[in-house]
Design a protein around this nucleic acid. Structure first.
Lengths: 106, 106
DNA sequence: TCCTTTTATGCGGCTATCATCATAACAACG
DNA sequence: CGTTGTTATGATGATAGCCGCATAAAAGGA
């Protein structure tokens, strides 16, 4: 059994990935570094919202930033999210295949 | 870029794991099958709350149940959560090691 | 059939978090 | 130093989700 503290850490981390807004930002940055203006264009979210989400992701070590003059260039900084999503995707696929099987055999 | 629908699926899945209550139930069931009464004893949550969380986890395919007369025996039904937690734990460890390194070199 | 035991669900209070607006902080340039 | 352009943050309304209480539903026994 993991300690309550560790479970808390897990839940905090997964909560970060439980919002499409943040996942979207992560995926966009995975395509290549961008500043906030670029992320606004790509996602349609407000500037303040994006900035806030980036702050959260940064504190978790999932993105990092680098100032270029007045702009701040953000970069995805972890292969972890890709791995997690791949596992989940695999699971979702298996589930759909199972449903398909059931439907076929009925 | 994943489709918005897939991102939505991801976020829904991760949200399931974003609550210590559900993680706790999953970890407990990983130790062995239990009925709701056993889970109440183990976690201290109310019966209604536990029943509801189990329903969510079941719909996601993370637990399954089997009626034994009047009782319902619940079982953890996926190694996925373990894999995900292992990856996250690894990440957390790396981060703490990094902080330790910084502290030592300062 | 009625009663007991166990589980599932409608309802509501409470808290946390999202998402925006307005504004502050920061950096470059004249 | 003032202005402009970019990003971060305080304040706030809206919403979602946790959690328990009360109750319904389901299953077995007298």
């Amino acid at each position: 059994m993991p300690t309550p503290q560790l479970l808390e850490e897990y839940s905090r981390f997964f909560r970060l990935l439980s919002e499409t807004a943040r996942l979207q930002l992560l995926c966009q940055l995975k395509q290549g570094p961008l500043d906030v203006a670029g992320l606004i264009e790509a996602t349609g979210f407000s500037q303040s919202h994006i900035s806030r989400q980036l702050g959260m992701l940064q504190r978790a070590g999932l993105v990092r930033c680098e100032r270029d003059g007045v702009r701040t260039i953000w970069t995805a900084d972890s292969a972890l999210v890709d791995q997690l999503c791949a596992l989940v995707q695999n699971r979702l696929r298996q589930q759909l295949e199972g449903q398909l099987q059931q439907l076929a055999s009925a």
